[in-house]
């Protein structure tokens, strides 16, 4: 018995140790650091209690960034999931009636691959690509607009506080939607074909099929997608940093970027950790809330 326990422990301890050192301990330290005025350049610091959190409450730049995360939190999952569901259902069950059986639109295989493209690019590459796409004179977006004779619409996308945030949101949707097309597509494959066929026979159109059959049967998958996307929305750091760096005039700032700049540009690691701790609770709350709200015990058709 003892030998067996030892055997199990040998396998369990190294991963637990690694997890403890690289995941749990930085978290614990972030909590500790958030109560100090540590500048991040020397081992000396003083405990300042809750001062950092107090300061956080009155920091307009933080609230501005948080507002953008809030907007992302509402919009990114909704838009991405709706688009993902639409594309996935077109690819797997949206084909024309008139041919026998349930199938996708013509060229479904091609679309499946194309939608997945952004997923194989790294975030940094996507950021740089889109930054160039949005460039006022040399960018592809304004090039297309001009070619179509819409010169009036060819504005400096990233240089205008009215548009910069939406430009970032568009990129976030673009880079994520492909993954959910695949995810939802795979889930749809497991929905029994005869359900769709029965619906077709009863004269259900594409929309009815989607709303009444696909969505209820995919609910678990959608729920997971929702949590994933919410987490991406609370982050958003990498894309924002590369494309707009939070500008112009903080119009596309997000909390992650604020944290990073507070730590590395301003050398205020104590305050930055306080932002991190606030974000930790925020992420946790949102995840729990989403799971609660979307929980359903039984599928009702």
């Amino acid at each position: 018995m003892r030998g067996k326990r030892l055997f199990i422990a040998v396998f369990l301890i190294p991963p637990l140790l690694l997890y403890g050192i690289f995941v749990v301990s930085p978290y614990a330290q972030a909590f500790q650091i958030s109560g100090t005025n540590w500048s991040g350049l020397s081992p000396t610091y003083e405990f300042v209690g809750l001062d950092n959190f107090h300061r956080l409450l009155g920091d307009g730049y933080f609230w501005n960034a948080l507002r953008h995360n809030g907007l992302l939190l509402v919009l990114l999952p909704v838009v991405t999931i709706l688009l993902g569901l639409f594309f996935a259902s077109m690819i797997s069950v949206g084909g024309r009636a008139g041919r026998a059986g349930v199938h996708g639109v013509r060229g479904a295989g091609f679309y499946r691959v194309v939608y997945f493209f952004p997923q194989v690019l790294s975030v940094a590459i996507i950021g740089v690509l889109w930054k160039e796409m949005y460039a006022p004179h040399t960018g592809m977006i304004n090039g297309l607009l001009r070619a179509a004779g819409l010169d009036g619409l060819a504005v400096a996308w990233l240089g205008d506080p009215r548009f910069s945030f939406w430009c970032v949101l568009a990129v976030l949707v673009w880079m994520n939607v492909g993954f959910y097309v695949v995810l939802f597509g795979a889930a749809m494959q497991s929905v029994p074909r005869d359900l769709y066929e029965a619906a077709l026979l009863d004269g259900a159109g594409r929309r009815t099929t989607l709303v009444r059959i696909t969505v209820p049967l995919l609910w678990d998958t959608i729920q997971v997608a929702w949590v994933y996307l919410a987490i991406i929305a609370i982050d958003g750091f990498a894309i924002v940093q590369i494309i707009t760096d939070g500008g112009p005039n903080s119009s596309s700032d997000v909390v992650g970027l604020r944290l990073y700049k507070t730590a590395f540009a301003d050398g205020q690691f104590g305050y930055a950790s306080a932002i991190g701790v606030a974000m930790f609770f925020l992420t946790l709350t949102v995840a729990v809330m989403f799971l609660r709200v979307t929980r359903r015990d039984r599928v009702e058709l």
Binding site: V23, S25, P26, Y27, Q29, A30, I33, S34, W38, G40, V227, Y228, I231, I232, I234, D235, F237, G256, L259, Y260, A263, F264, F269, G270, A272, S273, G276, V277, M279, F280, T283, A287
Partner: peptide, 15 residues
């Protein structure tokens, strides 16, 4: 999800 949250951990730069 574990993985995503640990990315946030990275973001908590300080630590």
């Amino acid at each position: 999800m574990e993985y995503r949250i640990s990315r946030r951990g990275l973001l908590q730069g300080a630590a």
